[in-house]
């Protein structure tokens, strides 16, 4: 792969997704794209760079971005954020929204759906507190492929074992050939759509948003722009949950960190 082709590909991916790929990851770009060339319908990476760069082929650019971004996710990832939702966030929202009796959540880089569906499982099991309440979850992601998979809600045996207990598996899934499919009731509780964090449509307002394990890929100005855009879609006092390696500190004052719980923030 030539240096010029690499530079074009890096630039297109960064403009589309915000993901800054360091030059020392160049070997990764080649390793991921070269096997895909036949499927993408181009002969060489130089031709590929030309199509997505000079010729502006949006469909190819999307496929390349997909191939170069990680969709790695799992059920109840890291555990703690979901405990915080149950123990801190939900009780607070129940108080604030007692008049409307409605909760709205957003999973802002939902990948193949494990994050919004984990939240749906958590809420569905919280029957005592949520009786008589309406709750809705929106999941969005840049990747059309990931969003389509999330809508399908069909997971391999490997995927359903990552973070999901056997008790929850038998309660909320049915077996579908070799795969497992989330039951209709929970699928219906989660709306899924494509959305780019760099150019968000009007959404919300939400009571809480999970924006996890995506900011890590952005440079600081992009992080700031995304966090401010997320804040604008939250209710005043609404909650933000970030990934373990992410923070708003030093980036934006749109959020205040929770004094006791790392990873939990509130719209200022």
């Amino acid at each position: 792969m030539t240096a010029a082709a690499l530079a074009t590909i890096r630039d297109v991916v960064q403009r589309r997704s915000g993901i800054a790929m360091a030059a020392d990851k160049d070997y990764l770009v080649a390793a991921r794209l070269e096997p895909l060339l036949p499927q993408l319908g181009v002969a060489t990476t130089v031709a590929l760079a030309d199509r997505i760069g000079r010729q502006n082929d949006a469909r190819l650019a999307m496929l390349v971005t997909d191939a170069l971004t990680t969709n790695e996710t799992l059920w109840f990832r890291d555990g703690r954020p979901f405990d915080l939702l149950r123990d801190v966030v939900v009780p607070d929202i129940l108080e604030r929204r007692a008049a409307e009796r409605e909760l709205r959540f957003w999973s802002a880089a939902c990948s193949t759906g494990q994050e919004p569906y984990s939240l749906a499982i958590l809420l569905a099991e919280d029957t005592a507190r949520l009786a008589g309440w309406r709750w809705r979850i929106l999941g969005t992601d840049l990747s059309a492929t990931a969003v389509a998979r999330a809508r399908e809600a069909r997971y391999s045996q490997f995927e359903v074992q990552r973070g999901l207990s056997a008790h929850r598996l038998i309660k909320h899934f049915s077996k579908d050939g070799e795969a497992w499919r989330l039951k209709e009731a929970l699928r219906a509780a989660v709306e899924l759509r494509e959305a780019n964090l760099l150019s968000l449509p009007p959404l919300g307002p939400f009571d809480a948003v999970m924006c996890r394990n995506v900011l890590i890929y952005f440079d600081v100005p992009t992080k700031r722009a995304v966090l401010d855009a997320v804040a604008a879609r939250l209710r005043p006092g609404g909650w933000l949950l970030l990934g373990a390696a992410e923070t708003t500190l030093g980036i934006t004052s749109a959020f205040t960190p929770h004094p006791e719980h790392r990873g939990l923030y509130r719209r200022a």
């Binding site: 056997a166 008790h167 598996l169 038998i170 049915s174 077996k175």
Partner: peptide, 8 residues
Amino acid sequence: MERIVAAL
């Protein structure tokens, strides 16, 4: 599913 349920 039946086996998993039975085991649990």
